[in-house]
C-alpha cells in the first residue's frame, strides 16, 4: 500500500533487443496536486530509472507524442492528471495495435504511411495556378466549419489504439488517416478527392468502420473521427451515384497598386491581429 502522498506507477517494460516478453515494473512516485502522468514519468526517470523510454515533447497536449495506454485507456500522458485516473495505481502500457520499440514507445510507421497514402493536403488541379496564384480563396464560416473540427487532429494515434477494427484487421486504414482524408475532402479549396478515392474505396478503408465510436471517445482534441468516417462514407456513396457536388469556391483578386485608392478594397485586420 503506497503512502498517502505516493502513488504506484506500474509500467509495462520491454526492450526487444534484450527481452523476449514484456514485464511490469512498479515505481513509487511522490504525488503533488495537479500532477500529470508525464510529470510522474519524468520523476521516475530523474530519480529511479534513467533507462525508462517514452516519447514526449510539448507537455501541453499539442504535439501528440506522449499518447499511451493509461489504466486501460489511450490518453495523452501530459494531458492526464494522475488524480483523475486513480488514487492508488497508474498502469501504463504502450499504444496498443502497434509494435513496441522500447517500453512505452510504439512504432507508428504504419500509421504515418497510411496517412501519407491518403494525400493529406490540399491538392489543386490547376498547375498554372500553383506557379502563378491569381488571388486568395475566400471561405464562408459555414465552409470553414465543414472541416475545422477534423483539422484539429494531432496524430497522437490514440484513436488507432482504441479502435476494435484496427485491432482485428491488419489492413484497415483506421480512424486517423481516414479522418485526415475527410478533412481535405470537405475543404472547398481541394481537388484531391479523385486521387484519394483509390484508397478510400478499398475494402479495408472507410467501409470497414462499423461505428464502435471508441475513436471519438478517446480523442484528446474532440476531433470526432467516428463522425468524419460516416460523413466520408456518405461522400463516397454520393460520388458513386454521381450526385457528389463540389462546393463553390470564390477567388478574390488582390487590389493592385495602379488602382485609384477609391477603388481599392479596404482590408480591415481581424480582431486578433496585434497592432504595432
Amino acid at each position: 500500500m503506497p503512502r498517502t502522498n505516493e502513488i504506484i506507477f506500474s509500467i509495462r517494460r520491454l526492450y526487444p533487443a534484450v527481452d523476449a516478453v514484456p514485464h511490469t515494473q512498479r515505481f513509487p512516485v511522490e504525488l503533488h496536486p495537479g500532477m500529470t502522468v508525464l510529470e510522474g514519468l519524468l520523476q521516475i526517470r530523474e530519480s529511479q530509472d534513467a533507462s525508462l523510454a517514452w516519447r514526449f515533447s510539448c507537455r501541453m497536449g499539442v504535439c501528440g507524442s506522449c499518447a499511451m495506454i493509461v489504466n486501460g485507456h489511450p490518453r495523452l500522458a501530459c494531458n492526464t492528471q494522475i488524480q483523475d485516473v486513480s488514487r492508488e495505481e497508474v498502469r501504463l502500457a504502450p499504444l496498443a495495435n502497434y509494435p513496441v520499440i522500447k517500453d512505452l514507445v510504439a512504432n507508428l510507421d504504419t500509421l504515418f504511411e497510411q496517412h501519407a497514402a491518403l494525400a493529406p493536403y490540399i491538392a489543386r488541379s490547376d498547375s498554372a495556378e500553383l506557379i502563378a496564384p491569381g488571388g486568395e480563396f475566400r471561405q464562408t464560416p459555414a465552409q470553414l466549419t465543414r472541416f475545422l473540427q477534423f483539422s484539429g487532429c494531432i496524430k497522437c494515434g490514440a484513436c488507432m489504439a482504441a479502435c476494435p477494427t484496427v485491432a482485428s484487421d491488419t489492413r484497415f486504414f483506421g480512424p486517423m488517416p481516414l479522418t485526415a482524408a475527410h478533412r481535405y475532402n470537405a475543404d472547398n479549396r481541394d481537388d484531391g478527392f479523385a486521387t484519394r478515392k483509390r484508397h478510400m474505396r478499398q475494402r479495408h478503408a472507410a467501409e470497414h468502420c462499423h461505428y464502435a465510436g471508441e475513436c471519438s471517445r478517446v480523442c484528446p482534441k474532440g476531433v470526432d473521427p467516428a463522425r468524419a468516417l460516416q460523413l466520408l462514407r456518405r461522400e463516397l456513396l454520393l460520388d458513386w451515384l454521381g450526385l457528389r457536388r463540389r462546393q463553390a469556391l470564390a477567388m478574390v483578386q488582390p487590389a493592385s497598386d495602379d488602382q485609384p485608392p477609391s477603388q481599392r478594397r479596404v482590408q480591415t485586420p481581424p480582431p486578433f491581429t496585434v497592432q504595432r
Binding site: Y98, V100, K102, A162, A167, A212, G213, R217
Partner: peptide, 28 residues
Amino acid sequence: NDHPAVEQRLGLVRWLTGHRHGIEGYLY
C-alpha cells in the same frame, strides 16, 4: 526505422477484453 520491435496487435481479444467500452462499443 530499423529498430527491432515486438508486435502487440490486440486482435479479436480487443473485442472482449480490451479497454473498457462505451455503449456503442458493446453494441459493436
